[in-house]
């Protein structure tokens, strides 16, 4: 088994090296960017809502206490600097590059280079042959992407100094264990496409498009179908740091409870109008009336949400892997 894993890396040495460099480079960059942010040293007393107040220039920052204005300004500069900007967007692309780089050639290159007849004749059961290669790829990318994902968590923590990245849904699908999950899904998908197409380049192109689409639709879809049941109605002014806005209710709420009623009738009933000298003056209620409701998942459900979404993504990856094993068993080796 060890031989097979090692030979898989040796066969794909360029991809193996590229994947290692990309992951470790991204992790190092994220840690450097975190260090850059931490080095500003914003005092804890300046944090508002778990974060450093955003410095919007002297005229707009009058609400920031005087002593916090300079740290806020410096932190905002660091936050919008190029190195931090690039580091925080790496998590959106890295797992796809890594998964596709390892997965696309896994079957397709054997077919392109005409070596599949040899290895398939020796292996007998093709699914075992492919499973061995997938295992080799997983052993490489899982730890590397985990390192990159944890570094991205550290960076997220540094970007919002008052919040725990593991109790905050900010960009949570672009960091932490999600990097591994996206990478594994991209790997399995591109292996399956490789078994279907038998050519590396078309696999890379199609896999990139599919990944882009999956990434863009993941959050709307999970919000709509997975997380709805976990939401709570948010009280006005009670927003907690790190919470995830899942949806805005089309209904209204009043006094912390969903409210369905005739808005005009409510306001009419709660407004007193007086007619003085032919001019009407009205006085509304002294408390907020019905408002648009926000349904959120609070930060303390972080691990629950991660576990749920991980299970879905792993199930999807397993299905793609099974498809790859099935296709490789049915196709011609050339």
């Amino acid at each position: 088994m060890f031989d097979r894993i090692w030979l898989t890396y040796k066969q794909q040495r360029f991809e193996t090296l590229a994947v290692a460099v990309m992951c470790l480079g991204a992790a190092a960059w994220a840690l450097l960017a975190s260090w850059h942010l931490n080095s500003v040293g914003v005092p804890a007393s300046c944090l508002v809502d778990g974060g450093v107040p955003y410095w919007n220039g002297p005229s707009n920052a009058s609400w920031i206490p005087g002593a916090c204005q300079l740290p806020s300004q410096r932190f905002t500069d660091a936050l919008t600097s190029l190195d931090v900007g690039i580091a925080s967007s790496l998590g959106d692309v890295l797992p796809f590059f890594v998964g596709i780089a390892m997965g696309a050639p896994l079957v397709a290159r054997e077919l392109e280079q005409g070596t599949a007849p040899l290895s398939w004749s020796l292996a007998g059961a093709r699914w075992k042959w492919l499973a061995g290669r997938i295992l080799a790829a997983l052993l490489l990318i899982v730890p590397l992407l985990l390192i990159a994902g944890l570094a991205a968590d550290v960076l997220r923590g540094a970007q919002a100094p008052g919040t725990d990245p593991h109790a905050s849904f900010h960009y949570f699908t672009s960091r932490g264990v999600f990097l591994v999950l996206w990478g594994v899904a991209a790997l399995m998908g591109s292996v399956a496409l490789g078994a279907l197409f038998g050519r590396t380049m078309p696999v890379v192109v199609v896999a990139l498009i599919v990944c882009l689409f999956a990434r863009a639709t993941w959050e709307p879809l999970t919000d709509a179908y997975v997380l709805r049941g976990m939401t709570v109605l948010q009280m006005p002014g009670a927003s907690s740091p790190g919470e995830l806005l899942v949806y805005e209710s089309s209904g209204l709420y009043l006094d912390g409870k969903p409210w369905q009623g005739d808005l005009d009738a409510w306001w009419n009933a709660h407004t007193t109008c007086t007619l003085t000298d032919g001019a009407e003056s009205c006085v509304g209620p002294s408390y907020p009336g019905p408002q648009l409701a926000w349904y959120v998942v609070t930060g303390d459900h972080y691990w629950q949400v991660v576990a749920l979404e991980s299970a879905i993504m792993l199930a999807g990856s397993a299905a793609l892997g099974a498809l790859a094993l099935f296709w490789v068993g049915r196709r011609r080796p050339y």
Binding site: D3, G114, L118, S121, L122, A123, G124
Partner: peptide, 25 residues
């Protein structure tokens, strides 16, 4: 089996081929 067109892995040496064959068969 010997295919009509010789099948060799680019980038692997001769001994790697034997190691590969041993790991598969």
């Amino acid at each position: 089996y010997v295919p009509q067109t010789p099948a060799v892995y680019r980038g692997l040496d001769v001994d790697d081929h034997l190691a590969m064959a041993r790991s598969l068969h």
